[in-house]
Write a protein that binds this DNA or RNA. Structure first.
Length: 432
DNA sequence: TCTGGGGTCCTAGGACCC
DNA sequence: TCTGGGGTCCTAGGACCC
């Protein structure tokens, strides 16, 4: 008998109920309890623990609807604490990376790695990763393994949906016979696949393609002609041919940068909108500078609530090409402020955003003397950032953003946990 | 009263070039 | 009446991801 092949495979490691798990790391009282994590402004549920899923809490339900029943069901809510989640994510990813030669950090709670070995060896490697991450960070992870990214996602679905697999926490697609694999694919709705959502799902249903097995049976070229190259790749990946490479190097530069927020209470006046835009623009300029990039095109928008029935929807938007590519906060704020003149005073706006596109690495082009933006060369951005770092957000601001008291529309986060891993004064106290 | 935020990729179509 | 062909670049919008 020939030895079992030691094939290269892709493993997808994902954190179980990541935000809820983060909340538990520093608050063991939340163990075994239904935990939900809310969006900004404590708006709606964006993540929940297994216990909350079992209770049937719908994803996306507004907190004001869930709150009345939460107490009676023992549901604990937390405001989202992205600083904590980001910090724990970095630790989790670092530990996962110790176990593989190649790693792609795909999102805040998912990472692709490549492994090599027999089916048994790779499953053992998956188990070691789980134990290691749990021991080092307190975060539970699961591992789906297959020859392609799309099938690794499918294997992960197995861990999530099958009770025996979820106890092990690791699923290797290659551990199944061809007949068993077909059965698995036939049990998965197409819209559960990576890259297939509602719109595509409806169009596929019209062609009588309902399950992953149905899709895998299609001719790849025809799927490309009728839909797109994206769906063609999905078909090929379902058949075991890798089409989506592991991206080892994190991308150095982004294509666009967005700062958008809902308000805790509606903004109805031009002066208030000017203040919003000044503050958002300053935040965005700071991010852009930290990324080492400059922007040439700016877009600002505001919008009314899609749920409001008593007023006309209104979503004004402006776009501007900046005189020269810049990360200079005064220029970006000035470019955004034009939007404030487009709002209808009295109309209730619930959110706004500023978007920078056509980004490029900073310092690529020399500007002729006198042609640069007004603040250029005066180090305004770094100075503002330094003051904010030392005295906190809101301690200093540009023009309309420079206010002593926080504006009434500012984000609400009533159930915020401590930022235990990034702020000395928010360290967790342990009593023995 | 109260419903998130930040990204990427692909395609079609228009502008423009020779 | 009849008005080329082939190519690139750019942008807006759709669709998807977590």
């Amino acid at each position: 008998m020939s030895p079992a092949p030691r094939e290269a495979v892709i493993a997808l490691v994902d954190c179980a109920s990541f935000y809820a798990s983060c909340e538990r790391v520093f608050d063991p009282r939340l163990e075994d309890r239904p935990v939900v994590v809310l969006s900004n402004n404590d708006g709606c549920v964006v993540a929940m623990s297994q216990e909350a899923k079992v209770l049937g809490v719908p994803m996306g339900i507004p907190w004001f609807k869930l709150e009345p029943v939460a107490a009676t069901q023992g549901i604990v809510a937390r405001s989202s604490n992205y600083e904590l989640y980001g910090s724990l994510s970095a630790r989790v990813m670092e530990v996962i990376g110790r176990h593989a030669a190649w790693q792609e950090v795909y999102s805040i709670d998912e990472s692709f790695i490549s492994l090599r070995g027999t089916v048994e060896e790779v499953i053992q490697a998956g188990r070691r990763i789980r134990e290691d991450v749990a021991r080092c960070t307190g975060i539970p992870v699961r591992v789906g393994i297959a020859p392609t990214k799309t099938l690794a996602k499918v294997a992960l679905l197995g861990v999530k949906r099958s009770a025996p697999l979820s106890r092990v926490g690791v699923c290797h697609f290659g551990a199944y016979s061809p007949t068993q694999r077909d059965t698995i694919l036939a049990s998965i709705p197409v819209t559960d696949l990576w890259g297939v959502a509602g719109r595509l799902g409806r169009r596929l249903a019209n062609l009588n393609i309902h399950t992953a097995a149905d899709l895998a049976a299609q001719d790849p070229g025809q799927m490309r002609r009728r839909f797109s190259v994206v769906l063609e790749r999905t078909v090929r990946e379902l058949r075991g041919t890798p089409c989506i490479p592991l991206e080892e190097e994190p991308r150095q530069y982004k294509d666009q940068l967005i700062y958008s927020r809902s308000f805790s209470e509606p903004v109805t006046t031009t002066p208030a909108m000017r203040q919003v835009l000044s503050i958002y623009a300053q935040q965005l300029a700071s991010r852009l500078r930290n990324a080492g990039q400059e922007a040439r095109v700016l877009t600002a928008w505001a919008s009314t609530s899609p749920f409001a029935t008593d007023q006309e929807p209104h979503s004004p938007q402006i776009s501007a090409v900046l005189p020269v590519p810049t990360a200079e906060p005064v220029t970006i704020a000035r470019g955004s402020l034009g939007l404030a003149e487009l709002i209808r005073p009295g109309t209730r706006y619930v959110r706004a955003g500023v978007v920078l596109t056509d980004l490029r690495p900073a310092g690529q082009a020399e500007t002729l003397p006198g042609l640069g933006p007004p603040g250029e060369g005066r180090n305004l951005g770094p100075t503002l950032d330094a003051v904010v770092a030392r005295f906190g957000v809101g301690s200093v601001g540009l023009g309309y953003g420079g206010l002593g008291t926080p504006p009434s529309w500012q984000m609400r986060r009533a159930m915020l946990s401590p930022r235990a891993t990034t702020h000395w004064d928010e360290l967790v106290t342990v009593r023995l």
